[in-house]
């Protein structure tokens, strides 16, 4: 589903920074993978490259059989539209739009008919348990609800790939656990390939596969150690974090 071959990313400036160096990674359809590493290890850069938000300095990236190198900006956008859903740490909801409108944006951008958009938006809000809040503005929602809304938006066309950048980073522990359970649930029900960038080792260990980065290189690539079968159960013991 996702293939990276010798991918490097170098930021040129007064000081040249190599964010990723010769990274090879292969992720199969339906996998749930966490990417961990200290700050500056290149995990967000990796996610941005896979999501087509940025372009690699060298190497090849393939998403669902489609090579990203050589694609124009609009072609990259179309690929994102159809194959990738994004979940951000700070939700990135548009503050003036209601929950339903936020979820509808990607569908409008595709030019779907109004009725179909409405049906899909309701379906998605139902899926993330946010139907009663459909007419609320982001400001009127709790952190967890905002992230649910963002997840519904990311799922708008049920993309095969879901990329989450610190999805629980801006939430309290309990809400974070809820969101992670939701992502896990959706992953199981929809069969999407999920990549989660996280600082939280418990979130990382709860995924089937864990990829650890350090200084732009893959340091470790192994199976996760924690298994949770029941949604809504905390991923880690709050006492442990203190």
């Amino acid at each position: 589903m996702i293939e990276l071959a010798s991918v490097s990313k170098v930021f040129l400036g007064k000081r040249t920074v190599t964010a990723l160096e010769n990274v090879d990674l292969s992720i199969s359809r339906g996998e749930m993978v966490s990417i961990v590493g200290p700050s500056g290890s290149g995990k967000s850069t990796l996610l941005n490259l896979i999501g087509g938000l940025d372009t690699a300095s060298s190497g090849e990236i393939e998403i669902d059989g489609r090579r990203l190198s050589g694609l124009s900006d609009d072609e990259l956008t179309r690929l994102r539209r159809d194959k990738i859903g994004f979940i951000f740490q700070f939700f990135n909801l548009l503050p003036t739009l209601t929950c339903q409108e936020n979820v509808s944006i990607p569908l409008h951008l595709r030019g779907w008919p109004k009725k179909k958009i409405e049906e899909r938006a309701n379906e998605l809000l139902n899926l993330v348990g946010l139907s009663p809040r459909r007419e609320h503005l982001p400001d009127e929602l709790s952190g967890g609800e905002r992230q649910r809304c963002a997840i519904a938006r990311a799922l708008s066309v049920y993309p095969p790939v879901l990329l989450a950048d610190e999805p629980t980073g801006n939430l309290d522990t309990h809400t974070g656990a809820e969101i992670l359970a939701l992502i896990r649930d959706l992953h199981e029900r929809l069969g999407s390939t999920v990549l989660i960038v996280t600082h939280d080792i418990h979130v990382a260990e709860s995924c089937a596969r864990l990829v650890a980065l350090r200084d732009g290189r893959i340091e470790e690539d192994r199976a996760g150690r924690l298994k949770y079968g029941v949604p809504g159960v905390p991923i880690h013991d709050p006492a442990e974090t203190h």
């Binding site: 609009d74 956008t77 179309r78 994102r80 990135n92 944006i105 990607p106 951008l109 595709r110 990311a154």
Partner: peptide, 16 residues
């Protein structure tokens, strides 16, 4: 800037 970035991230073409 962020709003426009989100728009592009969720599938907005340059012309949009």
């Amino acid at each position: 800037r962020r709003e426009l970035g989100v728009l592009q991230a969720v599938g907005g073409l340059r012309n949009q």
